[in-house]
Nucleic acid binder design. Structure first.
Length: 219
DNA sequence: CGCCGGATTTAA
DNA sequence: TAAATCCGGCGA
């Protein structure tokens, strides 16, 4: 890796930005693993300078090591003894930050997803929830640190589009400081039904009209 | 070394 | 509303 910190071909420049900037740029992008293709509809930013809600709050540990790595890698962790959670590592190397993929829509491989999710049929809630997303993609600890821009295995495809961006406080971080709990670091695609607690989110980055510029990927 | 609790999901 | 179910991080 001679080009540390510099985006490679096909890599979104936005991932080098602070997590709250990088996060909304991931909306609409695709996650691919085998025949399964998901379109990201909801994300949350973690880390940056100081964030009491981040796994990096206690410093570098074995579990969160991937958060310190270069942008564009996966950070997988096990939660509640039950679920795996997928994050996209962002920011410059050495600054722990990541974006939690909270929800997505199935674009391809529905049969595989239904099987993995043990769901009877498709619906807006099929992959709405971070544990569901990882399960649908068939992820576990072996994907921790995986390069999302390397061909084969789990991949992030920057191509995609999303509707107007919604933003609001992150979910499930009652242990964090009130200031960090209040940060509007949860983002979602306003045009998607695959979004949890949508009523807690409000339009952002638009100068008056929905679909306005501002949610564009800088590229 | 033992305890506490979690970036959740599901079923009752 | 509560159980499932494991491991990380902290304090002793």
């Amino acid at each position: 890796m001679g080009s540390a910190g510099r985006p490679r071909k096909g890599e979104s420049v936005d991932l080098i930005a602070p997590p709250d900037i990088a996060a909304p740029s991931l909306l609409g992008q695709l996650l691919v693993n085998g025949d399964v293709v998901l379109r990201i509809t909801e994300v949350e930013a973690y880390g940056g300078a100081e964030d009491s809600a981040s796994h990096a709050r206690h410093g570098l540990t074995r579990r969160n090591a991937a958060m310190w790595g270069p942008a564009g890698r996966a950070y997988l962790y096990f939660c509640y003894g039950v679920h795996w959670m997928l994050n996209v590592v962002t920011g410059p190397q050495g600054v722990p930050s990541a974006v939690l993929i909270r929800a997505a829509e199935v674009v391809g491989g529905l049969e595989t997803v239904l099987e993995r999710r043990k769901a009877p049929g498709a619906g807006p809630g099929l992959c709405a929830g971070p544990g569901k997303v990882a399960q649908a993609l068939g992820l576990d600890r072996t994907f921790d640190g995986h390069d999302l821009f390397a061909p084969g295995g789990l991949e992030l495809r920057p191509r995609g589009f999303a509707g107007p961006t919604l933003a609001g406080p992150r979910l499930g971080i009652g242990f964090a400081t009130p200031e960090d709990q209040a940060r509007p670091w949860r983002f979602a695609d306003g045009a998607s039904r695959a979004v949890l607690r949508k009523a807690l989110l409000a339009p952002i980055g638009m100068a008056g009209t929905p679909g306005a510029p501002g949610s564009d990927r800088a590229r």
